[in-house]
Structures are given as structure tokens and as C-alpha cells.
Simulated scan of single mutants.
Amino acid sequence: MLKKLLIITFILTANISFVYAKKEAISLACMPPEGTMDKAIQNSYVSAIEGAFLKAGHYVSDRQRLENLMKEILLQQSSGMVDETSAAAEAGKIMKVDYLVAVILNDWTERRLNVFAMEEDKKNDRLQPRENYYIYSDKMRITIKLIEVETSRIIAQEDFQGNKLDRPSKLATKIVKNMDKQLQKHFKKKR
């Protein structure tokens, strides 16, 4: 009886481990951020993205070291034959990371006409100049690309558009969670 119970337990454990297989962890490094946002804000978002990748169980290499290696490679290749992307790939190989994360952060101010307020004032005979009815909001777009160092292929990409007032850590967690799903699909195809 004990033997049958042990066999059944083993079979159940084996089946559960296949169903809930541990996701594959990757080693990555974030490239210097790009885009129109202020550099300090860009760096806070990239730090939040690195933290989200760490929380998701991935291995994250030091961004400052990658930037220094990229600068060194660009200086050594002063002939102009090496661009920033090639330097990043070379630095990624030196650091022994499998993937590079490109982070692009753009911001802008959106202007919309508050038609409701204008109509209310029109009804009450208090119409003001049109400029008084514009609403301004600070918007942002984050694009994250996961690039395989060996092939320079984009493996996953995630875009998010929102308000500039949103917390970086909250957005980073959401973006990395979505990107993680793409990664797991990529690894399933690869097998």
C-alpha cells in the first residue's frame, strides 16, 4: 500500500512540475536610455525597469559598466566603422550577457479642448476666449526592446503610453510582466 502511495505521489509531482515548469531566467543589461525625456527621469525609469527584471527572476548586469565598455569600444574604433549599436553588442559579449534592453522614453504635452466646459459657459452666456478652454496634460511613451546579443534580433518589445505622473516602478513592473510572457513564448518556440 505504501509503495503504491509513493508511486502515485511521484507521478503527481512529476506531472505538476511539467505543468508549472520554472520559467527560464535570462542575463541582461540595460543600454543607456534614449528619447526626449530629461536624463534624470530617464535614469529613474531604467533603474525601475532593471529592478522589475530582477524581481521577475532574471539576472541584471551593471548598466554603468556597460556604458563604460561602450564608450571604450567607440574610442578604440575611432574610424567610424562601429556605431553605438555595434558597440553595445560588443560590450554585451564582453559582459557575457545574453540580451540587451533598449529603453526609449519620450514625453510631450497634449492639448485638448474642454468642450463640456465651453458648452456650459455658452448656455450661461459666459463664453470666454477659446484659449481658456484648453486642458494640457503631460504624456509619455516607453518602448522597451529586448535584443539578443548574439544575433542582434529583437526578441520582445513592449510599448506603454501614459501620464508622466505615473510611478516608474509601477509602470516598469507592468511592462516587464508583459515582456516576460513574450519571452516565455520565444523560449517555447526555440525548444
Score class of each variant (00 low, 15 high):
Ala87Ile: 15
Arg63Leu: 09
Val19Arg: 05
Ala91Glu: 05
Leu74Asn: 08
Gln77Arg: 13
Ile49His: 08
Lys93Pro: 00
Lys177Ile: 00
Phe18Pro: 02
Lys39Ser: 09
Thr173Gly: 09
Met179Lys: 05
Lys190Glu: 10
Leu127Met: 13
Gly35Thr: 02
Met179Glu: 02
Met179Phe: 05
Arg130Phe: 15
Ala87Pro: 02
Ala89Ser: 03
Ala25Leu: 11
Met81Val: 13
Gly162Asp: 04
Tyr45Met: 09
Arg111Ala: 14
Glu148Asp: 12
Ser44Ala: 05
Thr173Tyr: 07
Val101Ile: 11
Ala56Asn: 04
Lys123Cys: 03
Thr151Lys: 14
Tyr45Asp: 01
Ser137Ala: 11
Thr109Trp: 04
Thr9Asn: 01
Lys174Asn: 07
Tyr45Pro: 01
Glu119Ser: 09
Asp125Cys: 13
Trp108Met: 06
Glu34Asp: 12
Ser78Trp: 15
Asn163Leu: 12
Asp38Leu: 08
Asn15Met: 14
Asn124Val: 15
Ile135Phe: 15
Asp107Lys: 07
Arg65Cys: 02
Ile7Gly: 00
Val103Ser: 13
Ile73Asp: 04
Ser152Thr: 14
Glu119Thr: 10
His58Trp: 05
Lys190Arg: 14
Asn178Pro: 02
Ile73Thr: 06
Ser137His: 11
Val82Gln: 12
Val149Thr: 08
Ile135His: 15
Glu72Ile: 07
Ala40Phe: 09
Ser27Ala: 13
Thr143Val: 10
Leu105Phe: 07
Glu50Ala: 05
Tyr20Lys: 10
Ala102Gly: 06
Asp125His: 13
Gln42Gly: 06
Gln128Leu: 14
Glu158Gly: 00
Ile142Cys: 02
Phe18Asp: 02
Leu28Lys: 05
Ile135Trp: 15
Pro168Ile: 11
Ser61Tyr: 08
Lys22Trp: 07
Phe116Ile: 12
Leu75His: 03
Glu50Leu: 00
Lys189Asn: 11
Ala56Ile: 05
Asp180Arg: 05
Leu105Ala: 12
Leu100Trp: 01
Tyr99Thr: 14
Ser61Glu: 12
Val115Met: 15
Glu90Asn: 08
Asp125Ala: 12
Ser169Val: 04
Ile16Asn: 04
Ala87His: 12
Ala52Tyr: 04
Asn124Asp: 14
Phe18Asn: 08
Gln157Ser: 10
Thr36Phe: 03
Leu105Lys: 14
Ile135Cys: 15
Gly57Asn: 03
Ala29Trp: 02
Ser169Ala: 10
Ser137Ile: 09
Leu165Thr: 13
Pro32Lys: 10
Val19Gly: 03
Val60Ile: 01
Glu110Asn: 12
Arg130Pro: 01
Pro33Met: 11
Leu66Asp: 00
Lys190Phe: 11
Ser61Cys: 04
Ile26Pro: 01
Leu105Tyr: 07
Leu146Phe: 06
Ser79His: 13
Ser47Ala: 14
Ile154Met: 10
Gln76Tyr: 06
Arg112Met: 15
Ile175Arg: 00
Met118Trp: 14
Lys190Pro: 00
Asn106Ala: 06
Lys185His: 15
Gln161Thr: 15
Asp107Thr: 08
Ile7Leu: 04
Phe187Leu: 06
